[in-house]
């Protein structure tokens, strides 16, 4: 070869050149696609929330959302108000769905910051749905969910998703057989305290007929993801308790 690839100067030049090329390439692609990706993410969020209140195109056992063209108009139609709860204030905000739970959680590490908890109130066939976004950790990475509840915190619908759980195991939390189990489960126990819902490996109720046991059937082989789901429900949904208490008093 004509070039001496062992020389220090060459190595450094090559490294600098590579960093510049790769850096510009990635930055250019990222910034040119950013708008589209953001739009896609917002549409997905609307689809997820609509899914939780039962607006979907499910056929058989598949999970399918309303189409992206319809999502914004359906979202405007069914979501009657969007609020966020900060400390004990309840603020109405038509862009509450843009609040990122992840960012709020990070900010909340600072004790002086009061976390904003978004809540979407929907009305469909004269039933009121309260949809809360929650977020937690699975085995590999983040997991999140949109849980639709009624005034008594009984679950009316749920959509779970994940960033990178093991395909075929933990990744199945976004499948019907797992999500549909949550419908009808109660978050509050008979005394009105927060009971949560446990993803249990040992409940003797695989068809989930007992809706008062605060348990759903776990997915075989994905203990940690399941524990993550239980923990996420416990930690994040509990925060909405005060709101629902107030709602009852009114």
């Amino acid at each position: 070869m004509a070039i001496n690839t062992d020389k220090n100067s060459y190595t450094i030049l090559f490294a600098i050149g590579m960093v510049i090329i790769v850096g510009t390439l990635l930055a250019a692609i990222d910034s040119s696609l950013k708008q589209r990706i953001e739009t896609n993410k917002i549409l997905e969020k609307q689809q997820n929330i609509l899914y939780a209140i039962g607006m979907n195109n499910n056929e058989g056992n598949s999970v399918s959302f309303v189409s992206t063209d319809q999502a914004p108009s359906l979202f405007d139609k069914y979501i009657v108000s969007q609020i966020y709860i900060q400390d004990d204030k309840i603020v109405e905000d038509d862009e509450a769905y843009l609040i990122e739970v992840k960012k709020e959680k990070t900010l909340a590490k600072d004790p002086t910051y009061d976390r904003r908890l978004p809540l979407f109130i929907a009305e469909k066939d004269s039933v009121r749905y309260y949809v809360a976004p929650i977020r937690g950790k699975g085995l590999w990475d983040a997991i999140w969910a949109y849980i639709a509840m009624d005034e008594n915190m009984t679950i009316l619908g749920a959509y779970f998703d994940h960033k990178g759980e093991t395909p075929g195991l933990g990744a199945n939390i976004n499948q019907r057989f797992f999500m549909d189990d949550f419908i009808g489960e109660k978050l509050l126990d008979s005394n009105g305290n927060f009971g949560g819902i446990k993803v249990s490996k040992s409940n003797l109720d695989p068809r989930n007929e007992d809706k008062d046991d605060h348990e759903v059937d776990a997915i075989a082989g994905s203990t940690i993801t399941g524990d993550g789901v239980s923990a996420m429900i416990k930690s994040d949904l509990r925060l909405y308790m005060s709101y629902f208490k107030k709602l009852k008093q009114e």
Binding site: T5, T11, F14, M18, V22
Partner: peptide, 22 residues
């Protein structure tokens, strides 16, 4: 033929990561 032998591992890793990210 133009990869400096001393940093070839970095170069390879970066090529593959860039491809996948794009």
């Amino acid at each position: 033929n133009i990869i400096p032998s001393r940093i070839k591992i970095i170069v390879q890793l970066i090529v593959i990561a860039t491809l996948v990210i794009i």
